[in-house]
């Protein structure tokens, strides 16, 4: 009997906890990074399928970096400059978003959400270069 009433209380507490979460529910946020300037090709939106890019873009960039810097092989497929050229877009006032704060920048929108630091832009430019390097090699 004692156990029964205790379990009863527990059930009430847990329902209360759940309800308080539901009541406090803000709408669930998910990043909406700005659209890229154009599709990579007729069949692919990006240089690889989106699912793969989402999971492995960091590895691609690091692999590319090692190839370019250490082995002298410079290709354009996973070039950071090309990512930025296509993905970082101006707002309606013609300004480029800030990489250091907010979530307007293409990279920032997800990286802030996941609390992952981006080291790239301590050296590299976070906005498109003046001379437009062709996206298609």
């Amino acid at each position: 009997m004692k156990l029964h009433s205790l379990l009863n209380t527990l059930a009430k507490i847990s329902i209360g906890l759940l309800l308080s979460l539901a009541v406090s529910a803000q709408s669930i946020t998910i990043p909406h990074p700005p659209k890229a300037k154009k599709d990579f090709s007729d069949t692919e939106k990006c240089v690889a399928p989106i699912d793969i890019i989402r999971r492995n873009h960091a590895s691609f960039l690091q692999h590319q970096r090692n190839d370019t810097m250490r082995r002298g092989i410079r290709t354009t497929k996973h070039s950071l400059v090309n990512c930025i050229n296509c993905h970082v877009t101006q707002d309606s006032d013609g300004n480029y978003p800030n990489i250091k704060e907010g979530s307007e920048h293409f990279c920032r929108s997800c990286h802030t959400y996941a609390a992952v630091n981006i080291d790239c832009f301590q050296c590299h430019a976070s906005i498109p270069t003046e001379s437009d390097i062709s996206i298609i090699p």
């Binding site: 539901a22 529910a25 669930i28 997800c110 996941a114």
Partner: peptide, 26 residues
Amino acid sequence: VTHIDIIHFKAFMLSVMYLDVFSGQY
């Protein structure tokens, strides 16, 4: 080694917490 889509996972986890998981959006 094998990275996952942590952005969509986080959205799923938030939807579980805020009881919106059965909406099918996350």
